[in-house]
């Protein structure tokens, strides 16, 4: 039997429904899982996305022809029934469920199974065919308990305040930065947001997400909060002249890649906090098991290792190709933020 959804040179395509999911070239109808730049790209005629993520998506892509739907709300497209379900990756992130002739295919988009107060939790959607991301599809990636991690971040901040130093934490501007913010204890000191983080944080607040107060990290704000501030900045700010005015400071990075010591040291930050918005090895396998899917597509990440491992376990698995990342036409800055790990 043919798959309901298959890979094409523009991205995942549902022929029976006449739409693409997260296409990387302009198309007529695009269902968007979430607003990260490697999933939401400009130029398509009509977009479909979750209501929860509308503001963030518009902040990212500007004016576009966009229809939004509540999670779980059914819509008919061509011959198929489509619905969006929370992916737990960031505000408004969706899995796409497609049903045709009693067969169900789910595309997870990016997702995580860990708790995150800034978005709806991941929903397990039973299906026959599951197309799952596997950004962290190796057993070296197993996340620590997020609560313990935020305790560590707050303890690091408190220690820096005692030493009279600012704390600068690098986190991808969309999603990760707001999740970090939500876990900070504002009683420790003032929180500043780098320009790239500031606008998106506002979009989160306007969408009804409750976050501790922040100030834009202007020269004035930096001066007033010297020695006690927690500054949230995108990774691209590391090593730039902008950092100079924050000295003395201790630096940290919040990312799943920080699970590996070499990556931590490579980034030349004082601390690496293992905080990811993707599912870890255990989360991926639990999801794959629990959906009951008989056929698994793996995409984005360690696809070769994942498919070999699953096939050896007797789970029919295929690799869903994605575009060459080296040929991305995104600018460097954009590409950087499009890799929210």
């Amino acid at each position: 039997m043919d798959d309901l959804i298959r890979a094409t040179d523009r991205g995942l395509y549902c022929e029976a429904g006449g739409f693409y999911i997260d296409p990387w070239r302009p198309v007529d109808r695009a269902v968007i899982t979430h607003a990260h730049a490697d999933h939401a790209r400009p130029g398509s005629k009509r977009y479909i996305a979750s209501r929860a993520g509308e503001r963030v998506l518009r902040h990212r892509l500007g004016d576009l022809s966009l229809e939004t739907f509540d999670y779980g709300e059914p819509l008919d497209m061509g011959k198929v029934k489509v619905s969006l379900h929370p992916a737990g990756h960031l505000l408004g992130s969706s899995q796409v469920r497609v049903e045709h002739d009693g067969r169900v295919c789910v595309v997870t988009g990016d997702y995580k199974t860990d708790a995150d107060p800034t978005c709806e939790p991941f929903e397990l959607v039973p299906c026959d065919h599951l197309i799952t991301e596997c950004t962290f599809g190796l057993p070296i990636y197993r996340w620590p308990d997020p609560q313990k991690l935020f305790d560590d971040i707050n303890a690091w901040w408190r220690g820096n305040v005692e030493a009279g130093k600012n704390s600068v934490i690098f986190a991808y501007a969309l999603g990760k930065a707001q999740r970090v913010l939500a876990g900070l204890d504002p009683s420790i000191g003032p929180i500043l947001a780098h320009g790239a983080v500031d606008g998106l944080t506002r979009a989160y607040r306007e969408s009804g997400v409750d976050l501790p107060p922040t100030r834009h990290a202007s020269a004035e704000a930096v001066k007033e909060t010297k020695g006690s501030a927690m500054v949230i900045a995108p990774p691209s700010a590391n090593g730039t002249a902008w950092m100079k005015k924050l000295r003395p400071c201790s630096t940290a990075m919040a990312s799943g890649w920080m699970a590996v010591r070499g990556r931590r040291r490579f980034r030349s930050v004082d601390r690496g906090f293992v905080l990811s918005d993707h599912a870890d090895w255990d989360g991926l396998h639990q999801t794959i098991r629990d959906t009951g899917a008989k056929r698994i597509g793996v995409t984005h990440g360690y696809v070769d290792a994942m498919s070999r491992f699953l096939n050896e376990q007797g789970v029919e698995t295929h690799v869903v190709p994605t575009r060459f990342e080296g040929e991305s036409d995104a600018s460097d800055a954009e590409r950087q933020e499009s890799e929210p790990q």
């Binding site: 057993p139 070499g262 360690y302």
Partner: peptide, 11 residues
């Protein structure tokens, strides 16, 4: 799979 992981971690 452990070899694959080793390739990524490098240690």
């Amino acid at each position: 799979l452990i070899s694959e992981c080793y390739g990524v971690v490098g240690d």
